[in-house]
């Protein structure tokens, strides 16, 4: 079975470590916040200028001056700090954020990512995504493995305008956890009940399979 959005988030959350500063993009990445293991502390960075993002506010706590990068009302966790946008991107560009999780339309074997524009269809802008992929070392891309029409999103070459070049090393899809190295995809784990053959079928770029591929574990 392909993973649900929540399960993708849950698997990403297993990559979090105690003391990590983390930036979560819009969509599935945002859900990762719901699965942070109870025994560790992480601090969420929101690129509009907040480190230490808390839960959504109650109706009484709503404050128009306190939002996240998705423009949603939020609260601040204990130990939070507020700063301007240049400071925020100094953290990101300076490599101070430990883990970045973001969505994409396409990823290719050379670690290129396309996530912000479909010419003629969707032109909304890159927001902070180009800064995030250029500035972070540790990035996990979350997306569905293929489109609704069965077209692979894991390609030998991205077809859409790039968000970043050669910057992606890990991709978690609804079918597989994949590492990118030396111009190839490497299959690390598969979703429970999904066969290696199914993953090969829906991966257009070169995919390396070494030994037995374990199923992802959800406790």
């Amino acid at each position: 079975m392909a993973l649900s959005r929540d399960q993708i988030a849950q698997r990403v959350a297993q990559e979090l470590q105690d003391g990590f500063y983390v930036n979560l993009g819009i969509g599935i990445p945002t859900l990762v916040a719901n699965f942070i293991p109870k025994d560790i502390e992480v601090m969420l960075q929101s690129e509009n200028g907040l480190l230490g993002m808390g839960a959504f506010p109650t109706e009484d706590e709503v404050d128009a001056d306190l939002i996240n990068a998705g423009k949603q009302t939020v609260t601040m966790a204990a130990g939070a700090s507020i700063f301007d946008s240049a400071e925020s991107f100094a953290m990101i560009r300076g490599g101070h954020v430990d883990l970045t999780v973001l969505g994409a339309f396409e990823v290719d074997v050379n670690g290129n990512i396309a996530s912000y524009m479909i010419p003629g269809k969707l032109i909304k802008g890159m927001g902070g995504a180009m800064d995030l992929v250029a500035g972070a070392d540790n990035i996990i891309v979350t997306m569905t493995h293929a489109s609704k029409h069965g077209e692979s999103k894991l390609l030998s070459n991205c077809t859409l305008p790039l968000t970043g070049k050669g910057c992606i090393k890990k991709v978690l899809t609804d079918l597989a956890f994949i590492e990118i190295k030396a111009g190839q995809f490497h299959l690390l784990e598969r979703a429970p009940g999904v066969s290696v053959a199914e993953i090969i079928e829906l991966t257009q770029g070169e995919l390396v399979i070494e030994g037995d591929i374990p199923e992802m574990k959800f406790s």
């Binding site: 946008s85 240049a86 902070g128 800064d131 500035g135 790039l162």
Partner: peptide, 30 residues
């Protein structure tokens, strides 16, 4: 369309009398 961090830095630099700066953001993209 300008990356958010580049946009912030363009303003910061403009205000600080720095005419231009190098950044890795956007390399290999439109």
């Amino acid at each position: 369309l300008t990356p958010q961090g580049t946009l912030a830095e363009k303003m910061r630099a403009g205000g600080a009398g720095i005419p231009a700066f190098y950044t890795a953001t956007g390399v290999g993209t439109p």
